[in-house]
Simulated scan of single mutants.
Amino acid sequence: MALPRLMVAPNGATRTKADHPRLPLSLDEITETARACRDAGADGLHLHLRDDEGGHLLDTGAYQEALAHLATAVPGMAVQITTEAAGRYEPGHQRHVALHSGAQMVSAALREIARDDEARAARFYAACAEQGIAVQHILYAPEDAERLARILPRGLLKARDLQLIFVLGRYLPGQSSTPDLLTPFLDWMTVADLAPDWAICAFGQGETACLRAAHAVGGKLRVGFENALVHEDGRTARDNAERVAAIAAITGPAR
């Protein structure tokens, strides 16, 4: 299963309507956003759910309901669930949700999944592979990449369908993302002799420049209000679909 070429991440775990009034929180709002973003050029949705109070939610039943609903509401759009802890969930719960929500695509930060036990993390990755669940490994720095190479069973590491996402600038002051932050990850893939299915995400006003640079060297892209609310010129985007359209104009039509 390949990564979508342009995935939208419309809300994330912590932002609220105080950050942007068109940030989708309910499943109905997420569905409406997914439709608009699909029409604007996105072929994938990075799914975060919220509870009744708007808090970040990792729940197998809620995911099962949402996945069934979205399969009907936005047919043909790939849906990837998050396992983000957001300070609320432990690795065991994250792994359980990934394995039992019925999702075919899951994003998982190595730093979180392996936080309690690297051996358990390795078994989790193997279990996902056995169940046909595509895990996109979230890597924040080359050190994460090197650690993944140690933990991941070698057959999975060298697989052509290994999915990665490089997060540019998450832990820099002001979450300032610049295209040069991609270079260490590209160098790591070369040295490690890997050819994975990879993507990036970036933050703030630098998001567009980073996505453009990644596209130029064969990377796939994730865009949306989870990471940035503004266009390259600093204007606040009207909604997620406007950000998707801006990036789709750079990547061109799907081939």
Rank of each mutant, 00 (worst) to 15 (best):
166 F>S: 05
8 V>D: 04
91 P>Y: 10
229 L>I: 02
41 G>Y: 07
53 E>C: 05
243 R>H: 13
5 R>V: 14
173 P>N: 07
112 E>L: 07
250 I>E: 15
65 E>W: 01
30 I>L: 15
193 D>F: 03
40 A>G: 10
120 R>N: 11
40 A>C: 08
151 I>H: 01
51 D>L: 07
161 D>F: 12
206 G>I: 04
20 H>N: 09
226 E>I: 12
18 A>M: 10
183 T>W: 04
48 H>K: 09
194 L>D: 08
43 D>L: 06
224 G>A: 03
236 T>S: 10
182 L>R: 07
243 R>V: 07
57 L>R: 15
219 G>C: 11
6 L>E: 01
3 L>R: 01
94 Q>R: 11
25 L>T: 15
55 G>C: 05
201 C>A: 08
98 A>H: 05
173 P>M: 09
30 I>E: 00
197 D>P: 01
99 L>V: 10
219 G>R: 05
137 H>E: 02
174 G>P: 14
29 E>V: 10
171 Y>C: 13
150 R>K: 14
157 L>D: 04
150 R>D: 15
12 G>D: 06
144 D>T: 11
88 R>P: 00
251 T>W: 02
28 D>W: 03
144 D>N: 11
139 L>P: 09
241 A>G: 10
172 L>G: 15
43 D>V: 11
80 Q>T: 12
178 T>F: 06
142 P>Q: 03
79 V>K: 00
242 E>A: 15
197 D>G: 04
111 R>Q: 13
8 V>Y: 05
53 E>H: 12
41 G>T: 09
238 R>M: 06
174 G>R: 03
67 L>D: 09
98 A>Y: 00
74 V>G: 05
123 R>N: 07
239 D>F: 03
161 D>L: 02
149 A>G: 00
179 P>N: 10
